[in-house]
Computed example of a mutant assay.
Amino acid sequence: MSVDPHPITVWHGSIRALASHAKEVVDGAEWAYASSLKYPRHRATVLASRAGFRRVVAQYVAVSPQHLQVTRVCGTCQRPHGPPKLPHAGYPALWTSVSHSGDCLLIAVSTLGPIGVDVEVVRARRTIAATAARCFTPSELAAWEEEPLKDRERTFYQYWTGKEAAFKLYGLVSHPRDIEVTLSRCGAAYARAPDGHDCWPLLSLAVGSVNVAHLCVPKQKHYEALLQTKFTAGAAGTTMSPLPIPVC
């Protein structure tokens, strides 16, 4: 089944549910790679992300998930764990980004240009202050330290997912401090490029009380197109569902 794609859509799904039915859609190479991993949790995550990607993207190119042509060759080690690419010349132009944490899988799809998405489970970390000092810019660190103590844990992940989403969009950075994130109270934010000239809109995504997530898009017009899109939330299961986007 094909879909009439919105310019940008973020899909969400359950790692556990998708992994339990992954064999229905993944190919032999994907199954073999997942089976080679030592820990069951890692195997489930790999299978879920492969299956979820196939179920989502197949709708855009009007093929069955099983027949979607995907390559994942790592440019460094040549193992099949790189970002997914669509090699088929007949497929429409699509840009994708994938992220997972805990039981949450997010897949962002754009017909406008590159995007980045990141999700993290908010969890207590004894090293959170040291990580912030090491990875945040002076402006980020000052703003984070002004937060009430009860809010700092969640705010840390808001900065972190913003940086990760921007890194996935931009790619050419060597340290988390190379990207500076500015947050806003209403959910909209932005990330600044290492050269200080480019500024990318960030959108905070509603993915449950235990998760924090951001979507990064390259241009303000893409952000405006995203905010004009209306989604209907669906229950996560063996399929991927469009994620509702909050509007400031």
Rank of each mutant, 00 (worst) to 15 (best):
F156L: 10
D118V: 09
A29S: 13
R126C: 07
D118Y: 01
A44N: 12
G52I: 06
E153G: 11
L37C: 02
E145T: 03
A62N: 15
F156Q: 01
G28P: 04
Y33Q: 11
T111E: 05
F136W: 07
R54K: 12
V122Q: 11
W160Q: 02
V98H: 11
A142Y: 02
R126Q: 15
A51W: 05
S35D: 15
T45M: 14
T45Q: 14
C74M: 05
V26F: 09
A130N: 11
D27Q: 01
S97E: 11
A29N: 09
S99L: 15
G52N: 12
G102H: 08
C104M: 15
L105Q: 08
G116C: 04
A93Q: 14
Q69P: 02
L94N: 13
W144R: 00
S139N: 10
C135I: 07
W31Q: 11
V25K: 00
P83S: 04
V122G: 03
V25C: 03
E140F: 03
G75C: 06
F53R: 04
L149V: 09
V46F: 11
E164S: 01
H67G: 08
T96C: 14
S97L: 14
P80N: 03
Y91I: 05
I107A: 09
R54Q: 05
K85E: 09
S35C: 14
D151K: 06
L47K: 10
V73L: 03
R55Y: 10
C135A: 15
C77P: 07
T111I: 12
D151Y: 06
L47H: 08
V25A: 08
A29C: 01
T71Q: 07
V63T: 14
E24V: 15
C77W: 08
A62F: 03
R50P: 05
V46I: 08
T111R: 14
A142L: 06
E120C: 04
I128V: 15
L149D: 14
L86R: 05
P138S: 01
P65N: 03
R154Q: 13
P92W: 01
C74E: 02
W144D: 00
Q59K: 14
E146L: 07
V117N: 02
C104N: 12
A142T: 07
I115D: 04
D103R: 14
Y60V: 08
D118F: 02
W31V: 01
P83Y: 05
A58E: 04
T131W: 10
Y91M: 00
V121K: 12
A48D: 13
E164Y: 03
S139V: 12
T131S: 13
K163A: 14
E145C: 05
Y60I: 06
E146I: 00
I107D: 07
T96S: 08
R154T: 09
Y157V: 03
Y159E: 00
L141T: 05
Y39R: 15
E120L: 03
S139C: 10
E30D: 09
T155C: 13
C135V: 15
H42R: 13
A44W: 08
A34H: 05
H67S: 13
L47E: 08
A132S: 12
V70N: 00
D151I: 05
A89E: 11
H42W: 04
